[in-house]
Every structure is written in structure tokens, then in C-alpha cells.
Design a protein around this nucleic acid. Structure first.
Lengths: 329, 329
DNA sequence: AATAGCTTTGCAAACGTTTGCACAAATGTT
DNA sequence: AACATTTGTGCAAACGTTTGCAAAGCTATT
């Protein structure tokens, strides 16, 4: 079936294209009678305006780009979900690109975004990203750029983050308050700034007490977290509490504890930083500091809108990280 | 910074727009010298072609629409991930819309897709979808339409599905083989064809045996699944095996079993249909029939490409559903 | 020296909108 | 009856590309 355009409608009705255009937008210049006829025909023919033409003419798009290391997972999918909700509510569209943690793909994604003339870009850096020049082009072109989660260190960018420092501190203080003296703390990839921040904040609190034994470990996935946990429970003196920096780590730790039939919280306490989904499926539910991808998405979008509306000062914003009590501590 | 167009480049070089256009595409008509100059300047100025203009001129887009009930979850996020990978590999873009299981939002999403002149649509129906007329418009406009997961019953559509019948049958047979006589089978939303198919296939196998007691239940979320399980374990005679039609249901069931400290598989066996992530985090790992969102995405994309390439016959395709043995049966 | 055939470039139309401006017809004012 | 105003509509340009066709400047052939 041929596509319906303003021209088609104008030919059928014997009116000019401009009259059709105005009638469809209920322009006051057009008579009620004409408006009615135009609307009726447009409905009957299922007219849908061609966004490409509109964008070209207007020199602006209502599409956001979103670059994320991976769509699946507990965190980014919630983030994307939040962004999509807001896009819909504000009549924007969303173009999603996965970087797969590969700097070359990231560059490619940036090109795609620029060719599509996105009106704004949400980006989460890969662990490999060395140079930000491709991102700087967005600033030069006055396209709002909002980094989230994995963000650059420079202050000249908008950054929406988990309050990593505060979150790690909260967890540490909770362990302190519960008088846990022998602690196994498992962190993620050592190269990530997010890991370093969480690590430092955690240590800072813990180190204030003299009689605490702390074992710090790093790992990249669940399996390694599991092995690390196993190793520590093979020792004579076993941990009284385990701190998990992420969901991935929590999975490995729980797998080990369940296999060894170590009961929580009587034999060992567990606390995690988490999006919130996983802690709730365990029994007892795991106590965690919430690092919500959904909230991060909402905040990122708010910042984006303020950029679109002309707010030019860059800022770093944090989402709150409430403590959610389970039965694991 | 002003945007760079072919016109800008042509003015700087004192050539016509058409020459620039051809030079950038390495058209044989253009001299090597001119090509070199044009490419150099375009690179220096960071020229990015305007996709809107290209699409308008060409009357075609390279964007797919993807309508999904929800982005987050175990299943759809993997599906989306697979589609995005293929889009990138084939130089398409992807526009994602969440229907939130709301028929009105679904209709809205369809409009957005048509306005954006998507070159193809992947769609998963909401549980509320009554009418398919809005979808039919894609067929009328010769826009390839590929339904996945939750699909309509009519044969006139392309449908990419889990082999629901086979998967449910496999699970049932496995229970049979293991001599489970008292079975609790929990299914999802009763309105969905996917539920009905799984239900029927499951019953068909189970009903071949005379001495089997089966309790069929339906539910919409984890919490209800949990309550249902609890109810059945309050009875005098408790189930010997539980069949979970989906991950959501598995979560509720496991929560209940763990709270009641019912041990698996000695007191009760568990088998699920699942994407595969969840079953692996439990101890023992849950035996499941794999229903992979990722695989579904890959197959859906393949079908879409064949549609784009002119294949007009509609078909229903299935992904394989291997059995993955855990320790729960 | 005239013609034919390349090589290289430019012109102009088209894709589907929106919008400033002009204009015609109808109405109102003296 | 002449003029001013209002009301409704159309013309044409512009957004940034692509592409069929024409044409200008060559070289080669006769």
C-alpha cells in the first residue's frame, strides 16, 4: 500500500498541502469545516506524519542515544527501563547501543548517534575507554551528554552516579555497629574507579577499629567470588561477616554458603550493595544498601531534560542509597 | 558549532554538492584528486551524514522497532541484547518501546513505530491485547512484522516461539520417568496462549498415567506462586514434585520451600522452564528446560532479515529447548 | 580540422514537512 | 460606494541528501 502524505490528502480534498498541514495541527487560520474534513480523511487513510521529514525540516530530533556496556543484567536493564518510561512520557524516542565493553564499538556507537542527530546522549563508559575526544564532539556540537554509573573523572562532564562512597561507608558502619570483628570484604574489578571508591570508603571506616580482622579480596565474576569464599571458610577461624560489593559477588558468596550449609545470620552475616532484586530471592533475605539502576535512570533523565532546557552547568549528582534490612545481619 | 553538511564542504572546496556527495561515496566518475581533497576536508570537519535527509530521500529507514512488555527481567533483556547485536552487525538501528503490558501503550508504540517509518517490527503481545488491527496496518504497508514469545494465534503472522509444547512435554515426561505421583503444576497468566499451550502439553503427558494426582494452579507473579506453594504444603499430603512454568513462578516456589526448610530433592523435586540464570543460583541448582531469550532473539532477527529480503511466506519457528540437569530432581 | 569518445563536474528535481508571506473573498465601517 | 479589516487559503522556500541527465573540457581518431 502506498504511504499517505499530506500531498495525497491535499489532492483528494482539492486543497493545498499547507492547508492540510495547518488543519491537522488545528491552526486557527483554518476554518472549522475544512479542519473537520481534513481530520476525517486523515483518520480514514491512517495518515502518519513522516518523522524524517519533520526532523529534517525542523533541524532537530526527539531521539536520545543510550550507550551501555550490556543490556542484560540486573542493573542496566532497570536503568534502560526508567529511561524508556521517561522518554515515552515526554514524547522522545530512544536508541539503544551496546558497547560490550569494547572501546572500538563505543566509538562506532558514537558515530551512529551523531548520524542520527540524537538530541542528547546517555553514556556509560567501557572499562577500556582511554580517550574521551569522541565524546567531546557532542559538547562541541551542543548535544547534551550525561554520563552515568561508569563516568569519567574530569569535572567538565555531567555525571550521575551511585553514591559509592556513602554506600560503602554505610555498609561498613553497619558491620561495625553489629560488632563484627572478622570480616571478609569482596570487591569487583580493581581497575574500575567505582571499585576503588568503594574500597577506600569501606577501609576508612573499618580501620578506625583496632580489633577488627579484615580480609580484602578482588574478583571479576561470581565463580571467583565463590572460590574466595570457600577458601576463607576452609580456615580455622571463619569470617563473621561478608561484604559483597555487587550482585555478581553476592551470587558467588551465597552459592558457597548454601553449599557448605552455613546458616545466615547465625554463623555468618552477609551484607551487599545491590539493585535489590537478588537479595529478595534468598532466604533469609539479604540486607543490602540499595544501588538502584531505576533511580539512576530517573535522575539521569531529569538532568538531561534540564540540559535540553538550556541549563549549561555541568554537575555530578548522586542517588540515595537506602539501607534495606533483610535477615542476613 | 554549526553542523557540517555537504553544502558547507562544497562551498569551502568550490565544488558542487553533487560532486561532494559522489566523492564521499567513491563514485568512479570523480577524479582521485578531488576524492582525496573531499575526504580530507570531511574528516577534518567531522562530517557526519544526516540520516534524516538520507532516509527521506531514499524513502526507507534502517531502523527496527521492538515492542516488549518490559525491558528488565531475565528473558526480554537477553532477547533485546541479541537483537541489538545483530542490528549492529547488519548496520541497523534499534528503537525500543515498552508496552508495560498495557494495550493502550502498545497502540501508542505502534504509532511511534509507524511515524518513525521503521523498516521492520519485532513485537511481543501484552496480556491485554484484544485486537490486532493496529498490527495489521504493518502488513498492509508491507512492513515486516515478527511476533515473538507472546504471539497471536492466527497463522497469518510470523511467530518465533519457544517450543512451548515440546518443552512442557519434556518436563512432564521427566517427572513421569522419575516416578513422581503427586504433582503441583503452577502456570502463568491464563489468558496467554503460551500458558494454554504449556498447560495442554503438560496435561496430555501426565494424564496418561492413572495413579498420578495433579494440582494445577495459575498465577501472575512470584508472590502468588509462593502463597500457592504454601497452601499445598499445609495439606496432609504434600507434593512430591513442583513444575514451574516460568522464572517468576520458580522464585515464589523457592522462597516458600526455603522458608519452610523443605529440602530439595529429598522432600520435593522441582523442575522449571527457564532462561537459565536463576536455576543456577539456587542450591541445589534447579533442573530446567531452557527457554532462551537470547536464542529467540537471534532466530527472530534471522527471520526478519529473510522478510526484508523479500521472503513473503509467514511461518512459525521454534527454538530448541534443551534439558539442563541440576540437582533438584 | 572536424568529429567522436572519454573524463569530470554541475544542474535540478525529488523525498515530506513547516511557515512567512501574499492574496482573494467576505465582512464591516464610514 | 468606497475603503478597511478579517477570514481562509495557496505559493514557494527550506531542511540535507541522492541521482539522471546535460555539459564542459579533454584526448584520440580520422
Amino acid at each position: 500500500m502506498e504511504t499517505i502524505t499530506l500531498k495525497k490528502i491535499s489532492e483528494v480534498l482539492g486543497l493545498s498541502i499547507s492547508t492540510i498541514s495547518r488543519a491537522l495541527k488545528n491552526h486557527p487560520d483554518i476554518s472549522e469545516n475544512t479542519k473537520r474534513r481534513v481530520h476525517e480523511l486523515a483518520d480514514a487513510l491512517d495518515y502518519e506524519p513522516n518523522i524524517n521529514a519533520i526532523n529534517l525540516r525542523a533541524k532537530k530530533n526527539r531521539v536520545f542515544g543510550l550507550i551501555v556496556p550490556s543490556i542484560s543484567g540486573f542493573f542496566y536493564d532497570s536503568f534502560i527501563s526508567a529511561i524508556e518510561e521517561e522518554c515515552r512520557a515526554n514524547a522522545y524516542s530512544l536508541m539503544i547501543l551496546q558497547s560490550s565493553n569494547d572501546a572500538a564499538i563505543e566509538i562506532n556507537s558514537l558515530h551512529i548517534c551523531r548520524q542520527n542527530r540524537v538530541c542528547g546522549l546517555f553514556a556509560c563508559l567501557t572499562t577500556e575507554t582511554k580517550s574521551l575526544v569522541a565524546f567531546d564532539k557532542f559538547n562541541e556540537a551542543d548535544i547534551p551528554l550525561v554520563f552515568f554509573d561508569k563516568v569519567p573523572e574530569e569535572t567538565k562532564y555531567n555525571k550521575i552516579c551511585i553514591a559509592d562512597e556513602k554506600a560503602a561507608k554505610q555498609a561498613a558502619e553497619l558491620l561495625q555497629k553489629n560488632n563484627k570483628k572478622h570480616i571478609l570484604a569482596i570487591f569487583g574489578n580493581e581497575n574500575l574507579s567505582i571499585t576503588r571508591t568503594r574500597f577506600k570508603a569501606f577501609q576508612k571506616v573499618i580501620s578506625t577499629e583496632k580489633d577488627v580482622t579484615i580480609y580484602n579480596e578482588y574478583c571479576n565474576d561470581s565463580d571467583i567470588a565463590k572460590k574466595i569464599t570457600k577458601k576463607h571458610f576452609a580456615k580455622k577461624e571463619t569470617p563473621a561477616a561478608i561484604f559483597c560489593m555487587s550482585d555478581d559477588i553476592l551470587i558467588g558468596v551465597m552459592k558457597c554458603l548454601n553449599e557448605l550449609k552455613i546458616s545466615i545470620p547465625s554463623e555468618v552475616a552477609v551484607i551487599a550493595l545491590s539493585d535489590g532484586f537478588l537479595p529478595k530471592i534468598y532466604t533469609p533475605e539479604i540486607t543490602y544498601i540499595e544501588t538502584s539502576g531505576y533511580k539512576l535512570g530517573k535522575l539521569s533523565f531529569t538532568k538531561m531534560l534540564s540540559c535540553i532546557n538550556g541549563n549549561t552547568d555541568t554537575e555530578e549528582l548522586f542517588i540515595t542509597t537506602p539501607l534495606v534490612k533483610g535477615g542476613s545481619l
